[in-house]
Write a protein that binds this DNA or RNA. Sequence first.
DNA 1: CGCGCGGTGTGAGGCGCTTCACACTGCGCG
DNA 2: CGCGCAGTGTGAAGCGCCTCACACCGCGCG
Lengths: 235, 235
Amino acid sequence: MMPEAPLAEKSAVLARHAFFKGASAGALNRLGAHAREVRYSAGQPIFRKGDEGLGLFAVLSGAVKISVPSPDGRELVLRLVGENEIFGEVALLDGGPRTADAMAAGRCHLLFLDRRDFLAVLKEEPSLAIKLLALVSDRLRQTSEQVEELTFEAPTARLAKALLRLARLQGTAAAEKPQIRITQKELGRTVGLSRETTNKCLNEWALDGALKIEKGACTLLDRAFFARLASGEAP
Amino acid sequence: MMPEAPLAEKSAVLARHAFFKGASAGALNRLGAHAREVRYSAGQPIFRKGDEGLGLFAVLSGAVKISVPSPDGRELVLRLVGENEIFGEVALLDGGPRTADAMAAGRCHLLFLDRRDFLAVLKEEPSLAIKLLALVSDRLRQTSEQVEELTFEAPTARLAKALLRLARLQGTAAAEKPQIRITQKELGRTVGLSRETTNKCLNEWALDGALKIEKGACTLLDRAFFARLASGEAP
DNA sequence: CGCGCGGTGTGAGGCGCTTCACACTGCGCG
DNA sequence: CGCGCAGTGTGAAGCGCCTCACACCGCGCG
């Protein structure tokens, strides 16, 4: 276990995190005072759905997978949290149980902020509250979109959308032909399809030349193709 | 058109609304200064998905239906907003387009608060911001639950859930055997089922004695029956 | 009155997804 | 090395939901 960094350094670490940009020095010090640095290696659980929500996590480096488990062992991946993002904000705010599982998607370095400290600072730092409001309402936007998607759109359209979303999330978004590192099993689970159906669908697209399939990954060769599918058109 | 109430009265109206309980007099006055009272009759649109989000609505009396339209004319009912609740908060916070349609579900009396006024007050009234945060994160909780429901649960379970939810929403929740006024077509649309499938499903439940079907309505005779279905068990 | 229309009831046919079953590959490990 | 395992590729069978088609009922309206 690494030794904990001293207080001053923890506030400095906080200050570098995108979410805390612009916060006052006082707020940063108060938050840093009780912040705990934590490290996880790939696959380790960070919290589980239903756990008591004790606070907020900020990702310093690495990535975290947020997902919900189904009674029969399936899993829906809600989002991938990357560097400079935060997660665990719902339970932070209402003190209720966590709404999803969080798992380290690779080695990751996090900062944990206690709920009570955070709320205390929030009371005196409206700008932080407003920032958080913007963030939470953005989440709400995305989640609502997901609800629409699930009720209205065809499974294959959802799959195409998921690929585009993953390309955006995995940082390779800017690339001409983004490569997405995910297994077909996981991919299917994020949209509620079986592995087999996912596989057949991907292979069809590969035949169309829009996709390259590798082991544990696939590469989008023709983004416009997927954009069309995602908006409900036939290819 | 009713004449507008004077400023003092509008702040007083605000103060009586559950969401603004505990706000300072100064904040209420500032919000009240630009608040507009608006009235709608049944079926009138309040805003549409994609409209510019200019502000927040508070329901003084009546009810508002929040729904999203699908490209092919279907409709998903997200929530029914009742007295002492607020809606339109997402677009309020990030200034983006409205994420759903809002329609008066009956005659209703609303208060409209401009986005810029609201944000200005928020900056100086952290307690209001915290209240809003709690509210938005609660919405996020519910919406996430809906996402889970849609990906994991069987259509019939969703239908059962929808009936329970509608019973709760239509005010007849307290009744022993709540009657729900909705056509089978609409009901199907709220869970993404065809009218025919909905019909067959309801008839099966009616045979089990759990449900009474009338024209344009149905009555839950056995709530426990639906609660079981909703939690994924076989009847 | 007859007609249209909205809501409901019901069957036939078809398509898509699921489950199950099995095969092939590459790779880590004892 | 051989073994197991994770990931992928594919086919058969089955089931649930959708679409289409049609029938019945009650009601408003010309």
